[in-house]
Write a protein that binds this DNA or RNA. Structure first.
Lengths: 109, 109
DNA sequence: TTATTCCATTGCAATATTACGATTAATTGA
DNA sequence: TCAATTAATCGTAATATTGCAATGGAATAA
């Protein structure tokens, strides 16, 4: 175990969970927030900015990249990262649709 | 390790991550979705509905309850769960504010 | 009381995640 | 060419998560 039984859930539920999981670590939230804040691509200063070891940041970037939320471009000896607008929008819709549900009735308990 | 270094991140980033993490498992997504769908409290049929062992469901419910997203009421020999509207709204705002950010400029890469 | 039902908790095994030092690969600058 | 810089990857340790069988506690039904 330790592995989620994804096969018993719908594609939709698995997809919501996959995106949510990627946002489920403060370092990844901080990375994404920084990319939004500086509003351009980030080349190299993420390690300083976030305050974790280089290997650790690289691992978090890999998670975000593998989901498509960010993309990286090699610029000489450094790599520049930025939000992938298209996939970010896709994630936004999937998560929003889920969390913006409202109860039609009062909770009974 | 295996433990996130939450102390180096802002309260806001940690809070976003905490909520996102709770939504980061398809079983918990399915549980919440079911609670919205039937639009009232659920007494006892979650194990059948989701298809995991009773102990496993109980554990997922505990995660959701400890974050305040759901609440449970004892009704005789069973327990009824429902969405906690107040905390759900709080989560909704926190997550929405984060994911609804838009880039002012084109990505440079 | 005794059996039953429902659910939480405990204990455990398998796997995943987080973090980092060390190494490697690629590029640039001298 | 050779050092320096940057970031990915490897290896490893510590901890967290997932899942389930077994157990236990609380309420109900007989």
């Amino acid at each position: 175990m330790g592995t989620a039984k994804t096969e018993i859930f719908s594609t939709q539920h698995n997809e919501i969970a996959r995106f949510a999981k990627a946002l489920g670590h403060p370092a990844r939230v901080a990375i994404l927030q920084h990319l939004f804040k500086i509003n351009t691509c980030v080349c190299g200063d993420l390690v300083v900015e976030i305050g974790l070891a280089q290997a650790t940041i690289s691992q978090h970037l890999k998670v975000l990249k593998s989901l498509g939320l960010i993309k990286g471009n090699v610029e000489g000896t450094s790599v520049c990262y930025c939000i992938d607008n298209e996939n970010w929008a896709k994630m936004k819709h999937i998560i929003s649709n889920f969390i913006n549900q409202d109860l039609n009735t009062q909770s009974c308990c």
